[in-house]
Amino acid sequence: MLKSVPRTRRWAAVLGAAAVLAAPLPAYAHDAVLDSNPKDGAVVKEFPSEVSLEFSGLIKPDFNTFALTDLGSGEQILTGEPTVDGQVASLPVPENKRAGEGKYQLGYQITSSDGHATRGKIVFEVSSTGDVTPSTAKPEAKEEASASKSQDANADTEQTSNFGLFAGIAAAVMLLGVLVVAVKKRRDL
């Protein structure tokens, strides 16, 4: 005849399984933009014939989108699926879509190497006084680019802190459960 498993052992097994399932998982950072054409915050003389972004990881081939917007009018000039080649995503800009002087934003969404969507934007300006590197770009272009990066960082931090809160609560509940089991076991002796 099989003896039934004591209740304290069952609770210990349940709590052990919960501890394994709730253990903190390694954090995977989404891929980030390493380089772009045009550069983020750059002032160029001519509208680019192609826009491209180089990421820190290999881009998955599905669900990638670029959108080019005139910041002055808010008009979306071009949207499309970029060509992916390893870590680089690029989209040709047809001649009839190349606008004149002004500020432009290249918004993107790519599927990162970790399988998650990565969104963001770069800002550039077309001006007859162009070919200014991002470090000497006009202050407002730098501020817009900095604000974009700050918003992306805040979103990642919020997700990370929510996970940390959940993991902390789960650990506290597990510790409480282990203490309850230990006390019950001690009483049974």
Score class of each variant (00 low, 15 high):
107 G>T: 11
186 R>A: 09
129 T>H: 08
41 G>Y: 05
9 R>S: 11
95 E>I: 15
10 R>G: 15
140 E>N: 04
150 S>R: 08
143 E>G: 04
79 T>K: 14
22 A>H: 07
7 R>P: 00
25 L>R: 10
137 A>Y: 06
165 L>W: 11
91 L>P: 02
22 A>R: 02
51 V>P: 02
188 D>N: 10
22 A>G: 08
37 N>Q: 14
100 G>L: 07
169 I>T: 07
74 G>D: 00
117 A>V: 11
136 T>Q: 13
167 A>F: 05
169 I>Y: 02
118 T>P: 01
99 A>E: 03
38 P>C: 07
182 A>T: 11
122 I>W: 01
21 L>D: 05
128 S>R: 12
124 F>N: 04
13 A>G: 09
101 E>C: 05
138 K>A: 05
185 K>W: 13
60 K>L: 10
153 A>V: 11
22 A>Q: 05
43 V>C: 02
53 L>E: 03
123 V>R: 10
104 Y>S: 02
46 E>C: 02
159 Q>G: 11
144 E>D: 02
42 A>E: 03
70 D>A: 12
72 G>Q: 05
78 L>F: 05
179 L>I: 14
87 Q>P: 06
42 A>M: 06
108 Y>N: 07
119 R>Y: 06
103 K>H: 00
178 V>Y: 07
71 L>G: 00
105 Q>P: 00
113 S>E: 06
188 D>V: 14
116 H>D: 04
158 E>L: 15
140 E>S: 10
110 I>Q: 03
68 L>F: 10
91 L>Q: 04
182 A>M: 09
71 L>S: 03
11 W>L: 15
37 N>Y: 12
25 L>G: 06
103 K>C: 03
183 V>F: 05
172 A>V: 14
43 V>I: 12
86 G>E: 03
163 F>E: 11
16 G>Y: 10
6 P>C: 06
56 S>V: 08
44 V>M: 00
152 D>E: 11
114 D>F: 12
58 L>V: 15
140 E>M: 07
101 E>V: 12
45 K>Y: 03
154 N>E: 08
96 N>P: 00
168 G>E: 00
117 A>M: 08
73 S>D: 00
41 G>A: 11
187 R>D: 00
177 G>Y: 03
33 V>P: 04
121 K>F: 06
1 M>Q: 04
188 D>C: 06
50 E>N: 02
157 T>P: 02
133 T>G: 07
143 E>C: 04
136 T>W: 13
